Computed example of a mutant assay.
Amino acid sequence: MKRIAVLVSGGGTNLQALIDAQGRGEIINGSIAAVISSSPDAYALERAEKAGIPGYVIDWRDYPSNRAMTAALVDKLRQLDIQLVVLAGFMTILTEEMVRAFPNAILNIHPALIPSFAGPGCYGLHVHEKALAYGVKLSGATVHFVSPECDGGPIVLQKAVEVLPDDTPEVLQRRIMEQCEWKLLPQAVSLFCQDRLSVEGRTVRILDK
């Protein structure tokens, strides 16, 4: 059984999707062992408490740099014997020490079809604002392994939704969360925990059971 840590900063809707999937028995050979927040005020910590999952705070304001915070986070993850790290709305940029500590064992969910609308500055509503401004007909979500390049790691799963003429960034965000993010992230986590993801360069292959 692989021990999973979910890293959060805010409301924790993707965390809730993982908690719900775990409750339904959909995360095979894995269990959420910890929720770690970069903010003591994150509602995601309340979600963890309600689910009986230990919550921890590593407040970015307590550290002089992202590198120092990353080092503290790696230490905590090692203390907790974590095998998979999931970034679920974690708003602090981690330095390369995290990737070195957990190679091909950090999953992130991005609210667009990478490589579109990805990279520095593309987070939250900004992603959907950019998609609408560009006039794309499809958007969606991507689960990928984390690499030193922002949003640049190998892609695990993607799912698309139609962009409708009257969409606002908020409406598009909600559709992508409901139809893509909340489905893809638990699926990718379960595949990892079953040792069914094989990384070959930039390609992630899903192995048969």
Rank of each mutant, 00 (worst) to 15 (best):
L113W: 02
V189M: 03
A101M: 10
Q16H: 02
A42S: 13
D208A: 13
G201W: 10
L125W: 01
L18H: 08
A141K: 05
Y43N: 13
L138R: 13
T13N: 03
F117L: 05
N14P: 13
R100A: 14
G201H: 07
M91A: 14
N14E: 06
V8S: 01
T142Q: 04
I93T: 13
G52S: 07
A141D: 03
E181L: 13
P64D: 12
I155S: 10
L197I: 04
R175C: 12
K137W: 04
I4D: 08
I27M: 07
A48P: 01
A133V: 03
S38L: 08
S116Y: 05
S38R: 07
D167H: 05
A44M: 08
E97C: 07
V199W: 11
V146C: 00
Y63G: 07
S116L: 07
L157G: 01
K130G: 10
D20L: 00
A17M: 09
R3S: 12
C150W: 05
K50F: 05
A112M: 01
K159V: 00
A105E: 11
I32S: 09
R24I: 01
C193F: 03
S31P: 00
L94S: 10
L172C: 11
D195L: 04
L125K: 13
L87S: 13
W60G: 00
G25S: 12
S190M: 05
S139M: 01
P115V: 10
L84M: 10
E46Q: 15
G201P: 05
Y134D: 11
E178H: 05
Q187V: 00
L172Q: 02
V6F: 06
T168K: 08
A68V: 12
T203N: 06
T95V: 06
A44D: 07
Q173L: 08
P111Y: 04
L138Y: 13
A44P: 11
I109D: 02
L207S: 06
V99L: 08
H144E: 03
C193G: 03
H144G: 04
A21F: 03
S198D: 12
H126A: 13
P154S: 05
Y63F: 15
M177E: 11
M177N: 06
D75Y: 07
M1Q: 14
P186I: 01
S139I: 00
L84G: 09
A51P: 12
E46R: 14
I82P: 07
L80F: 12
K137G: 00
G23D: 10
A112R: 01
G23Q: 11
P165Q: 07
S198M: 11
D20F: 00
A71S: 14
Q179H: 11
